[in-house]
Nucleic acid binder design. Structure first.
Lengths: 143, 143
DNA sequence: CGATTGACATAGTAAACTAATAGGAACGTT
DNA sequence: AACGTTCCTATTAGTTTACTATGTCAATCG
């Protein structure tokens, strides 16, 4: 998703390119992309110049949504899950539940308020900062 | 650990009692307790009136410590783990790493600042509130 | 119009993890 | 010495994770 956000607006990205950029086996990546596509976050085009594209602007896709598609609920335990709540007989008298809920809410807040546009921006910033450093340590001689 | 905190200062708790109170198979619980004991958080006594006790006051045991004993690092991915860091070639240019780190730090902050004394207190509060409610809905007739 | 390229689908597998079970040895109190 | 309980090692069944393998279908370009 990050790779696709970095190339948003350009031509579709091939599985192979994403595979290389992120060191993910192509055949494995294919399945992941399919799953995310079925959930409605990606469009695909077949044939030469085919590939995958985000189906909506990356500003409107939170990391939490994609994690839910791939890994299921954010909660560390079902008794505090919002999307897959399961009742527990001790629910009303368990101090741990309070803690698990606090944890769930904290990470939900982070992952829901972060879009892939945000992640891409952080990536670009980090890469620029990196390049600056390399300019200093290795003056020229581009290889 | 919660059960043991609730009985801190009293006589050692048998595996069977914890097992009943928390609905955990006794044989399975045994292994868990052993593991926590080896890590130094519990003392045990054999024979009649034996059982397990916390080896230090529950105020001084954070939930994070016990999770680390049982489940390993708090981090969602090794590249942002403090206790089991693993380097990644993309480490310096990955916007996702920034997000995983933010997540890790958030839950570490929660779990490290919460002691079992805190969890026990929440449990007691919840149970009292519960009892109040039951007094209202079921006036007397204690069963 | 057909070869190429890539999407789409299903099944299988190896390793790791989770949640246990089994059997007995060691120990401490009575 | 008997009894209750922890302690310890080993084994198992089921699930999940992270892949690999194989094959079919569809779209696009020349």
């Amino acid at each position: 998703m990050l790779e696709m956000t970095l190339h948003y607006g350009e031509s579709p990205l091939h599985i192979r390119d994403i595979s290389k950029a992120q060191d993910i086996p192509a055949r494995f990546l294919e399945q992941i992309l399919l799953q995310i596509k079925r959930a409605g976050y990606l469009r695909s085009r077949k044939g030469p110049n085919g590939g995958y594209t985000l189906s909506k602007p990356p500003e409107n896709i939170s990391v939490a949504e994609i994690i839910r598609v791939m890994d299921g609920p954010l909660a560390p335990i079902d008794c505090v899950s919002v999307t897959a709540h399961e009742v527990c007989p001790r629910e009303k008298s368990c101090g741990l539940r309070w803690l698990w809920k606090k944890s769930r809410d904290a990470i939900a807040e982070i992952l829901e308020s972060t879009s892939f546009a945000d992640v891409a921006e952080m990536t670009r910033k980090a890469r620029n900062a990196n390049q600056e450093n390399e300019k200093i340590s290795l003056p020229d001689k581009d290889k």
